[in-house]
Design a binder for these strands. Structure first.
Lengths: 146, 146
DNA sequence: GATGAAACCTAACCTTT
DNA sequence: AAAGGTTAGGTTTCATC
């Protein structure tokens, strides 16, 4: 894993169907040198797979929100995790620096089900209040399944 | 968007580098018929892009932040998208309701590169200021590659 | 769905460090 | 050895019919 590998990964992240020659002309290698590196990255498990990014409207999860969670007193990350994992609409959550205790990303089919899911979070023990922002337009969404 | 399109999407989700002939033999079409459908799915925006899944441990994106972006006057979503897409550390972005104009999720190797990426966002035209929260503990991360 | 030219992938071989 | 370049073949893509 050197710098050239990282640049190859960046190129493939942008276009996983790019030709080896095209990648090579960006990173300064021949097509076969790029192929060898990509094959190695796949064999080593660095590249887990080649996939596509599909319009979420096709899947039907169109409504999305970003929620700051403020708790009373101290709440352990373990407890927050337990509470938030129980809500299927919660797609991402993490404790953060700043005035909020946690940041939560939610997705659902419509506003009504989003509100219901938000209620489940709010009613959890020690949650003082939340501050939500509904996503209007998704601008960037890069795959990240880690 | 019929059932065959959905099966083609499933195939590409599993392997975005699969040949048209290979996909065709699974869904029961000729290679050129599959190519025409894939081209149409891309043109229609159903397929947003071809990308790779990278082992997160390997590329070491351990530092993560949520950033609220506040702009001066009105900024078009298109312009925001153009600016934010150009910063590779931006993993997610969307315009939102509330006082902030957009919410941005960033990931990078360390605090220094996160700060550098944040600078790139801040220097963009019409960005008034930003408010960041560094993620301390990731509590929930569900796969969502749409 | 079929065809043919152009582009691409792939493996073997050679050169360099 | 290890890593890149070059070449030649077979395969795939892609426009056209």
């Amino acid at each position: 894993m050197d710098n050239i590998d990282r640049r190859i990964l960046d190129e493939l992240r942008q276009n996983a169907r790019a030709g080896y020659g095209d990648i090579g002309s960006v990173v300064g290698l021949s097509a076969s040198a790029v192929k060898r590196r990509v094959d190695r990255l796949v064999a080593d498990g660095v590249i887990r797979g080649f996939t596509i990014h599909v319009d979420p409207a096709v899947d039907g999860t169109t409504t999305e929100a970003w929620v700051e969670v403020f708790c009373r007193g101290t709440v352990s990350p373990d407890e927050l995790q337990r509470i938030l994992s129980a809500v299927p609409e919660v797609v991402y959550a993490g404790t953060v620096t700043g005035s909020a205790d946690a940041i939560v990303q939610m997705r659902s089919r419509d506003i009504a089900s989003l509100e219901a899911a938000l209620e489940k979070v709010r009613l959890a023990a020690n949650v003082d209040h939340t501050r939500s922002a509904i996503v209007l337009t998704r601008l960037v969404q890069r795959a990240h399944e880690d």
